[in-house]
Amino acid sequence: MEAEAETCHPRPRRSLALSLWTAMMVVALILGNALLAKPSLADEIMTPRKQVPSAFSGWLDEDVGPFPGVVAPEGTYEGKDVEQPIEFPHDLHTATNKINCLYCHTYARRSAVAGIPPTSKCMGCHSIIATDRPRIKQLTEYWDKGQSPPWKKVHDLPDYVRFTHERHLKKFLFDNPDMTVERVDEVCALCHGDVTKMTVAKKQKPLTMGFCTRCHQANGGTFDCQKCHK
């Protein structure tokens, strides 16, 4: 009889339990949404993971690159020797004679490609300077024939990549308050290696997509695929 009486005991109210259960579920949903929400693949591709604001980059030791306002991309590459028609000494022009990179590669600051200077630019100096040297005689031969030396391309990007020199120079040099145009060789050195120590230019940085994206990550560049792939 006692057991029967127990079973007949009035049950706790259904509605209260139900509302409690719903409230718990709502809380769980909110927490679950907030905890488990992951950025989508597109978000991950688009947003750079580590952005270094250039104003603060000088304050932190690990962010100091070769010059203020940039984190240098890591990576080296053993490029092959390139046989140029005339063995052009970069070190003599830049390190010894202190000629600015932008004097000869003048298109770098206003177009996508840095360009090779026309022979007339060479002859602007070399019709007077060092005319007795064998290489200059070689150059003068080309000049007299009305030809330009068939220079070989050293840094060649694939057809599907778009790279503009002007925008990179604008960011790292002209918009950078800590830099002056005289120090442009440090900006060039980010991707081309230290040309002031080379005779004939050689590829010293890998220039792969990983190399580009590492620098874009560190310096807050774009991560939109279509900006660089055409």
Partner: peptide, 18 residues
């Protein structure tokens, strides 16, 4: 391979080398 994706410009992009 996410070669077709949406750019922040509202374009429907196709990355050929991908």
């Amino acid at each position: 391979v996410a070669a077709a994706y949406h750019t922040p410009d509202g374009l429907n992009a196709q990355i050929y080398n991908r």
